[in-house]
Design a protein around this nucleic acid. Structure first.
Lengths: 107, 107
DNA sequence: TCTATTATTAAACAATTATTAAAATGACGG
DNA sequence: CCGTCATTTTAATAATTGTTTAATAATAGA
C-alpha cells in the first residue's frame, strides 16, 4: 500500500512528457531494460538531462538501475505503478476500476 | 481514448497534495459535488488558492462545475480518470491491470 | 439600491522544475 | 597508469508553479 505522498511523487514523476515516454519505453523493453545512453539517443534528449529525469523516476521508485560494464541499464519497476493504480482506483474512482460508477453521496 | 498530452495534463493536475485531496473529496461527495467555499474550509485552503487548483483540475477535465445561486458546486468527472487509468494500464503496464506482469522483450 | 456573501481574477513573489554547458566520476582496454 | 567512453554531478538560467493579498464580479436579500 502506497501513502498519498508516495502517490503524489509517482504522479509527479510521470506528469512530464519526456518522463512518461521514458517509462513507456522501459515498459516495452522488459526486465532487461535499456542503457542510459541508448535511451537518451532514442528519445533525442541530452545525457545530462536524461540523468535528471532518471533521478525523478527512480526516486519515485518507478524504475530501477543496474551497472553492466560501462553501461547503466534502467528498467521499469511495476510495483509502484501498481500501487499508484490501486490507490487511484480505490480512493479516486469509488472503487470501480473500469467504469468509475456513481459513488455514494457523502456531502 | 486520451492523447498522451491529455494524460500528462491529468497526471500534472493530480500530482499535487492539495489537488489530489480535492479530487478524493469530490469523488466521495458524489455527483452533487460540493460548494467551492465549503471545500476550501474543509481543506483549510484560502478561497483564492482553491480557485487556482480548481482551474488546474477542470482544465484537465477531471472536475466539472455548476452555479447554484451564489454557490459554485464542483463535482468529480470520471471520464478523464478512466481514460488516464486505461492509458497507464495499456501503455505503461504491459496491459496487465492488477499485476503488471513481465512484458515482452523489445530492446 | 445598498450591503453582505460567494467566488474568481490579477499582481507580486518565493519556490520548484527543466534544460544546457562544463566539469567530474567511474569503468574498461591498451 | 593513460586515454577514452558512459554516465552523473554541478552551476547557471529560463520557465513554470503555488501562495498570498487586494481588487473585481455576481448573486441574494433587506
Amino acid at each position: 500500500m502506497l501513502t498519498s505522498t508516495q502517490v503524489v511523487e509517482a504522479l509527479s514523476a510521470l506528469a512530464q512528457h519526456t518522463r512518461l515516454e521514458i517509462y513507456r519505453l522501459l515498459v516495452a523493453c522488459g526486465p532487461e531494460g535499456m542503457a542510459a545512453g541508448k535511451l537518451a539517443e532514442r528519445m533525442k534528449v541530452s545525457p545530462a538531462n536524461m540523468s535528471f529525469h532518471f533521478k525523478a523516476l527512480s526516486h519515485a521508485g518507478l524504475i530501477t538501475s543496474r551497472q553492466e560494464g560501462r553501461f547503466v541499464y534502467y528498467a521499469a519497476n511495476f510495483t509502484v505503478m501498481n500501487g499508484m493504480l490501486a490507490y487511484l482506483t480505490e480512493n479516486c474512482c469509488a472503487g470501480n476500476p473500469q467504469d468509475c460508477a456513481i459513488p455514494s453521496q457523502k456531502c
